[in-house]
Design a binder for these strands. Structure first.
Lengths: 232, 232
DNA sequence: CGCCTGGTTGAGAATCATCAACATCTGTGG
DNA sequence: CCACAGATGTTGATGATTCTCAACCAGGCG
């Protein structure tokens, strides 16, 4: 069955945890990774409050991360695509502070953290890589903070589209035509906007020929203009 | 001179890196830490773009972290208080992606990262602690994201005050009366608000007896009400 | 003393949220 | 395979919150 795949043959190996590891080291990493059956849409990788035991890597599909706020509402804190690591939020307090659920059918690799820790201690490049992945998460969060802080709705949406485009490119997929795996509601929630505003901006961008929207399928028609909007 | 102090006698040892280390281990950590002369107000611990070589711990004073946005403006991403670790933003790309400068005279401990890495490999509890500190940074960033996402100006300010109060408490300082080391402009920038709005909210909170403001000195008069405002 | 930075307050303008109606899509069971 | 219900998305009208512009005040420093 497909989900028994090993890191050695995973086509994401070059952007996932095994990066910078020797073949023999990959095998050692591989041996501690658990691959369970795929997550269907709406199923959870883990939930907020749950004890932290593992970090995860996404092999296929798409996920969203979210927390429940004081007043019981959902707050989307991020989306994950193949090759990306998640679950490190739980290290600090030994339990997860966010929930992660599947936006579509997704395959995840589970990496028991205790074993990753001991393995890291003997594989300096792995240790460094784990540090690096966590640091990247910090960088991304800070970029989102910057985005949410006092930027117009248009800029927020443009920035998200450019970001998704870049992540698609990294996966050797089209940087200009892709499917948004998340709902408009999730996008709005993530960007600190209402659904209505997101919808209006999509319409506006479409009218001004920046992109073509057909339900969840997106085509970026004027990437430079979107980049300008996103970062000016 | 005071800045030659060692971890062993540092009163912050219990909340800083040495936490959970044996005495002999603390000595090994201590031996790699460099303590340079204090940073004066406005001086930098490091600047955005600078090669990443070390992480830092703040011993005294207060710092602010910020990035420069595409259009050349400052974006404040956080404040640091004694016992807190910073600089881990640089790990991912081997150079710093934010700048950190002193809001007042501050003493920092510099920890060369290469040495911290090798030491971590032989001290499991240190490795775990570094992971933990990075994870905490992620958690904090995500809380800020949640705060910035669609929350009223009042809630943002209340949440910051509560957060500062808690961090003060952790330092054995008063949780209800403290000095804001940062300017109103910095607060606004951090919270995604204009200076004027911050100022108005302080006035409003003062009028409704939630707090007493005298320039930078703050007294929280009704912590429960502020907490309710912050997290409802 | 006067300048400059940082902070406060006011009035008007703009952006985005809210409320509401309607359209479309999904998937479930008949 | 179709019909329908609930979820998801779009569009419009209105209003609130916060930004912008502007004046003014206080304190620190040459």
């Amino acid at each position: 069955m497909e989900y028994r795949a090993s890191c050695t043959i995973c086509r994401l190996a070059s952007i996932c945890l095994p990066i910078a590891l020797e073949a023999s080291e990959v095998n050692r990493l591989d041996s501690i990774i658990e691959r369970s059956k795929p997550l269907h849409k709406g199923e959870y990788a883990f939930r907020e409050g749950q004890p932290f035991t593992s970090v995860f890597a996404l092999r296929s599909g798409a996920l969203k991360a979210f927390a429940i706020t004081g007043d019981g509402k959902e707050q989307v804190t991020g989306f994950y695509f193949p090759g990306e690591l998640f679950g490190v939020d739980g290290i600090a307090q030994n339990r997860h502070v966010i929930s992660v659920k599947a936006l579509e059918t997704s395959a995840v690799c589970e990496i028991p953290f205790a074993q990753l820790e001991s393995l890291s201690a003997t594989l300096p490049s792995l240790q460094r890589h784990v540090f690096r992945l966590m640091s990247r998460e910090i960088t991304q969060d800070q970029q989102l903070i910057t985005l949410l802080s006092r930027n117009s709705a248009e800029r927020r949406v443009a920035a998200l589209l450019i970001n998704l485009s870049q992540r698609n490119a990294k996966l050797q997929r089209s940087a200009t035509a892709f499917r948004l795996p998340m709902s408009r509601t999730d996008i709005g929630n993530y960007l600190g906007l209402t659904v209505e505003t997101v919808s209006r901006i999509f319409s506006r961008f479409q009218k001004s020929r920046l992109l073509a929207v057909e339900k969840k399928e997106i085509r970026l028609l004027d990437v430079p203009a979107l980049e300008a909007l996103a970062s000016d």
